[in-house]
Amino acid sequence: MRSLSAPLDTSHHVATPEGVELNLRVAGPVPRALAWLIDLAWRLAALLVLAFVASVLGEVGTAVFLLSWFALEWLVPAYFESRSRGATPGKRAMGLMVVRDDGAPCTLGPALTRNLLRFADFLPLFYFGGLTAMLCNRQFKRLGDFVAGTLVVYADPATVARQIPTMEPLRPPIALKPEEARTVLDFAERAAALGPARAEELASLVTPLLRDNTPPVQQLTQYANYLVGHAAD
């Protein structure tokens, strides 16, 4: 445990050369297991089709089948992961992608490495090794991820875009600290999603800040409008 005081989170912070910090939301064993299942399904399906074709083509068919099996097992997943989306079809379906430890997209080398090491993760049977490894480290890395220096993260945005309803801006009665201003903005953005009752309840928490006659939610939203910089009153 790095520090007991830091609140627990699943994101992994990476500083880029440009000096900003990226938050990568690391994905755990459950979604990854499901992604693996989907991948397994389509790979099996592909092999089944190939087996059928192979049986028609005879020995050449067998050759094609074996070569495709080899590719499907070792190369194709790596190919997908080194492409721009960084995900096998299964991972994509689960909204996951593979990136390197520094947040950069996965390249062919690490992708192949982590795929070859799937064999080690599989040991002794059914990915027991990989599962245990994932449950033992903060970044949910399996053995292959350790060697390749990769992470599996969520690809889609963390939040959904929402707007602050436009209203007559109103200057808050006290000067808000940046942190507090942010809270008011956050509230204004999410108030509609909370339902009037809960929004009301939350807004009432800051009663001392409110003037008498307008409803609290509306007032906070007006503050938010002021804070984002609509012309002041």
Binding site: L22, S84, A158, R182
Partner: peptide, 27 residues
Amino acid sequence: RERRYSPQLTERLHQLVLAGHHVLYAA
């Protein structure tokens, strides 16, 4: 982030940087 603009805006920029990072630092 420093000025504590609204979470939505920050997240939007974060997404943009993330996507840019992926394109610029691609293999």
